[in-house]
Amino acid sequence: MIALLSRDLALAIRAGGGFGLGLAFFLIVVVLVPFGVGPESTILSVIAPGILWVGALLACLLSLDRIFALDYEDGSLDLLATAPIPLEGVVAMKAAAHWVTTGLPLTLAAPGLGLLMNLEPAAYGWLVLSLALGTPALSMIGTFGAALTVGLKRGGLLLSLLVLPLYVPTLIFGAETVGRGADGLATTTPVLMLAGITLATLALLPFAAAAAIRINLR
């Protein structure tokens, strides 16, 4: 399974692999917001948690349709399905590779972008923590969506429509954590909810996604 993870990471870094694409998208979205909203720092710092989280979520969405589509087209997915690795493990490794190439860079870059959005100083730690806790769920839910739409022509749009509603709980509790952190309020509840959602998706969705792939390969 480590072999699969390291192969996917190697593919992401090589030409055309799309590593950094999500990060660049996140950067541009967040830079565009002050242009649209205007430069008043009070307004920006109020909307900063929501914008940063929505930006991260859209950046995650960008690379989802590649998770299984490329392997499906070149036949690797058939071969992986007949390999000794359980398909659930394949799904988990695919989600992990997606997180390392998008969620992790987003989490690390977020404080810099918080500066652009005039985020309250107290909220930086909560921003990083909430993204670190929440982005694995985004990758896992996205991988499930990708498994559902694998093999469909132009499945990318359908994938977005399927996945975005499932992102809502993570978005709510993630932005709430940062917002409360900025206002100096207790953040325990949203952090626990965020962690709970992530753990539940990590525990359940590999099985659902593997079942979806098995059906789609027939």
Binding site: G17, E73, G75, S76, D78
Partner: peptide, 15 residues
């Protein structure tokens, strides 16, 4: 017990 090979070779172009 079976090794399956089909029309598609499952190769990664950049490897």
């Amino acid at each position: 017990t079976m090794a399956y090979a089909a029309h598609a070779d499952g190769l990664k172009a950049t490897l």
